[in-house]
């Protein structure tokens, strides 16, 4: 950037504003790692649970213990990201609070699972539709919007299909909702 205060043309002014907007708009797109991490963890947990259900294992839900290291890894990645990217845009802030609220809702649902007769799979899938779709709207990324719709459809189908098939629908939903958009975001970022 030039050190002097030389007069600008309107074209140059517009170019400066556009350039600065472009420099900050990539922040949320850097979040592909979280979609890939949680997509893989939840897909793996759902597929393992399905296998254990088919094997008539008495406590198939034990596989969900895998989310504990995933949470720890998420906290570490968020801390590292914060140190590296200190500037937070207004949209970054909205996005962060939205996913934080989502985490609190999921935690509450799991804690009070008995109150909903442990019909957690369809409810969690339906709730997941909201932040996924809105993240897609915020960064104008269609695969995440499609992913959000997929969560909603799989959530509704889970109510209809019932227990043994619910983990499979969960795995399908996170594959379309998190893993595929995560891969596409990564490709787009590197392009």
């Amino acid at each position: 950037m030039k050190p002097d205060d030389e007069a600008l043309t309107t074209k140059q002014s517009l170019a400066i504003i556009t350039e600065m907007i472009n420099l900050t708009k990539g922040n949320i797109r850097n979040n592909s790692v979280y979609f890939l991490l949680w997509g893989s963890v939840i897909a793996l947990a759902n597929l393992s649970m399905f296998a254990l259900l088919m094997a008539h294992y008495p406590r198939p839900y034990i596989v969900w213990i895998i989310v504990i290291p995933a949470w720890l890894l998420t906290l570490y990645l968020a801390y590292r990201h914060r140190r590296k990217h200190r500037m937070a845009t207004h949209l970054d802030r909205i996005n962060m609070w939205m996913w934080l609220c989502f985490g609190v809702v999921i935690f509450t649902l799991v804690a009070f699972g008995k109150a909903v007769n442990y019909q957690l799979n369809p409810i969690i899938l339906l709730v997941s539709a909201l932040p996924t779709l809105l993240s897609g709207v915020i960064i104008k990324f269609r695969p995440l919007i499609v992913g959000g719709i997929c969560f909603w459809i799989c959530g509704a189908l889970s109510f209809v299909l019932g227990s043994p098939w619910q983990p499979l629908l969960g795995a399908l939903a996170v594959t379309v909702g998190y893993i595929i958009p995560g891969i596409l975001l990564r490709i787009k970022k590197e392009a």
Partner: peptide, 10 residues
């Protein structure tokens, strides 16, 4: 309407 100040404000 100066290059650097406009960039900072943007």
């Amino acid at each position: 309407h100066a290059q650097l100040r406009l960039a900072v404000m943007s």
